[in-house]
Each structure stands twice: as structure tokens, then as C-alpha cells.
């Protein structure tokens, strides 16, 4: 999956209230206004249901940028 598609889907499924222009590979997603414990759960669900990947709580804790998430999604 390309990084661009990954971010588009992430915006559609997880960061629904965040402007896509604020989301680049370098974005620190935990600094987005929308980020909270429920967004984290949505992220887990998105990985599980749409990307068919498991992302653990520790992996989310250790991730900083959207690129980190993309790397997990494409690993």
C-alpha cells in the first residue's frame, strides 16, 4: 500500500475530523487534536479489519509519526 493511500484511508476511518492536509508521513499523530484513547482503539480496529494487520498497544505507544504506522502496516 502506498503511503498516500494509507493516509487517505487513515483519515477516512480513524482521523475523520482531521483535515487531510494536516496529515503527512512526518505528522506526529499524537499531537493531532483528535488523538485520544478512543482514536487509538479506532486505529487498532482499522488495522485489524481493513488492513488485516495486528497492531499492539506497545507498537502504538512506540510510534510517533504516521510513517511509523505505515511501516507497521506494510511490514
Amino acid at each position: 500500500m502506498t503511503a498516500e493511500n494509507f493516509i487517505i484511508e487513515l483519515q477516512e476511518e480513524v482521523f475523520m475530523e482531521t483535515e487531510i492536509s494536516l496529515m503527512t508521513l512526518e505528522t506526529n499523530f499524537k499531537e493531532l487534536d483528535e488523538w485520544d484513547s478512543l482514536t487509538a482503539l479506532s486505529l487498532i480496529a482499522h488495522f485489524d479489519m481493513n488492513l488485516n494487520k495486528k497492531i499492539s498497544g506497545d507498537q502504538i505507544k512506540n510510534s510517533v509519526t504516521l510513517e511509523d504506522l505505515h511501516n507497521i502496516a506494510t511490514a
Binding site: S37, L41, D48, K54, S56, G57, I60
Partner: peptide
């Protein structure tokens, strides 16, 4: 951290991992 302060006699729940387990 993250609003969780507990004792050894309390339930500890790793919310994100429990969620991941349950949705699948």
C-alpha cells in the same frame, strides 16, 4: 500514566490489547 493509578490488589487492564483481542 494515562489516567491509570492502581494497587497490586486492583484489576489491571491493558485496554488496547484487550480491545484488539476482542474485536477479532
Amino acid at each position: 500514566g494515562e489516567g491509570v493509578c492502581l494497587r497490586g490488589i486492583d484489576t489491571i487492564m491493558i485496554g488496547m490489547d484487550v480491545f484488539s483481542f476482542a474485536i477479532s
